[in-house]
Amino acid sequence: MVANVVKKAFYRFYLFQPGLRIWHWIQFLAILVLFITGLYIGDPFFIGSIGWEANDAYAHVLSMDLIRLIHFAAGYILLFAFLYRIFLMFTKKSHFSLLIPKFWKPWFWKGIIEVLLFYAFIKKSHLPLIRNPLARIAYVFVLLLIFFEIWTGFAMYGLSDPSGFWAKFVSNWTLAFFGSEYELHFWHHVVAWVIAIFVIVHVYMVFFNDFIAKEGELSSMTAGVKYFPEGHLPEDCDDVASQKECKKLREQS
């Protein structure tokens, strides 16, 4: 058993169990595949099957059919990864509580301003936080977006089999909710791009935090731990450790 906090010259916070880290990278791969194949499905920008009869093209070249199959397979992986993430919320405290934007805490509002100034290179550092308020908002937001993509995606997918499971339980009311499937296609596209933009910002922010703040932002999703120098006990310590532990550490420092 790995201790939640190890006190040496630094605090070592064990944030993520291997399951969550594997989930993160599986989801990353699934989204990557979904985005690339989705671009082709949305607007087929190359025609790979010239010279083939339509019926023979399936087996021989990279056809729309194969790309859609990959898209759907990756979609199922994303769906089950999402369900697994919900299960993970019950396995460790930090899996759940780090996701919550704690707007009722004073450090949340102070953190927003300080982190913004820190990102704009105006301040050298910000108050120590395991996960800063901006990241909390962004992660909840992106999980909702991923859920939206799964929902609209399977709603569209289900209607190719009008009496199947997805059509019965998801597609019909979704279609009535959006008005028509055209809107469904439209928003599925738009949200895919929002997720793509998130990925760019996310990667930049992770490397920024890893290099500038030196708190092990990158290692939190590979080794699962984050480090804080002694005396800089994070304000949201009790999202990872127990309140008793945090209180003890706070008194010591």
């Binding site: 087929p44 025609i47 209607l159």
Partner: peptide, 29 residues
């Protein structure tokens, strides 16, 4: 269905019943 359309006539996409569907699947546009 949920929008009040008779299922026997409005249950399928035109795309899924289209005779040009093989060209779509083959990626020929």
């Amino acid at each position: 269905d949920d929008q009040g359309r008779p299922k026997q006539f409005f249950g399928n996409r035109i795309h899924d019943t289209c005779y040009r569907r093989p060209f779509f699947n083959a990626g020929q546009f």
